[in-house]
Write a protein that binds this DNA or RNA. Sequence first.
RNA 1: GCCGGGGUAGCUCAGUGGUAGAGCGAAGGACUGAAAAUCCUUGCGUCGCCAGUCCGAUUCUGGCCCUCGGCA
Length: 345
Amino acid sequence: MNTSITTASQLIKLVDSHLKTAKRQRKIPLLAVIGPTASGKTAFGIALASHFNGEIVSSDSRQIYRGMMIGTAQPTAKEKAQARHYLVDFLEPDQPFNLAEYQRLATAKLQDIEKRGKLPLLVGGTGLYISSITENYLLPDSQPDQELRLKMNKLAEEQGKEAVHLLLEKLDPEAAKRIHHNNLRYVIRALEIACRKKKFSAVSTAGQSPDKSPEQSPFYPLFLEVRWPREILYQRIEKRIDQQMEQGLLKEVKNLLTKYDENLPSISSLGYRELGLYLQDKITLADALELFKKNTRNFAKRQLTWFRKFPQVYSIPGEALSEVINDLLTVRPAGTGKTARPKEK
RNA sequence: GCCGGGGUAGCUCAGUGGUAGAGCGAAGGACUGAAAAUCCUUGCGUCGCCAGUCCGAUUCUGGCCCUCGGCA
């Protein structure tokens, strides 16, 4: 289901009623601002936070890294002054990070915000991270195993990806059926889980598909999606990349590459990878920018695919966004906290 | 104006007397510990226009239009 919201008053009404329902259900209300890259989530999130007395937890897998402010479009200092942000700009680019850790950190932060009487917001475009919170993923008890990953990657190189998939077929036929043999990354992860289950077979539920339990989630999310016509979105992506270049993205990338390995997940983010190719003289700057833009468009498309599966989403047409933001920021007289959520108990 | 190359999918091009394909792009999809990652699926388009030959032409012939290169 999908409903369109075009004015601030509609939005305020919607949020107020959502807060009431959450209270009735004894859950923590959560505003989840979603949308593809360059759709305007950051500004929208800040306006919501400011209007509803909220604080923002990022659900962006790349804004977590330090020293990557331009390329990942982290909130600026000015924006951070308008609303508190968490899980942004806090991790060195060579530090490992993963879904489980995100889920743990984000959950704790969101709960903490609520305890302090503020409204928690989740703002960002990483579908997997969002879902892990809003759908309450129950992650399998299986740590990443770097040694196994290396071994399996080597096996794939020597004997082909099918060889690795064949291994999975023996250990977990169900998972093997679900995962395409070319998707080496997924196959290896499934092997990690399968090996773990084998060791602790007493408690395993073999071959079960991944689990979630939204009913038992502590949160009651309201999805707000910023939506643009496809062509306009692509124009915005192009424009933003040009702006990032003007802000000195090339210098930022250069700086990171002198310190870090180009194969790190952080450094292989959009823009960093393409500009890295240019800095290594492998392609021209014009080609790098074109590739950067194309890859970003493709990424936006994947994000949209992910968001389509959320059951109930309220969409704000991009054309109406700036007025909504403006109204959110002006409706509430500054400092009175008049429309702030009343604290229960 | 003359000589030559070419006009086929959004782009670059391959190809055949029985109405066509590859790469790129694009679109759609999957996704539970690397996720801005990783992976899967999808190609009827007046084969430049008009006429002729032929059972049949995108493929051959003629004319026209357009385009690129060379010479003027």
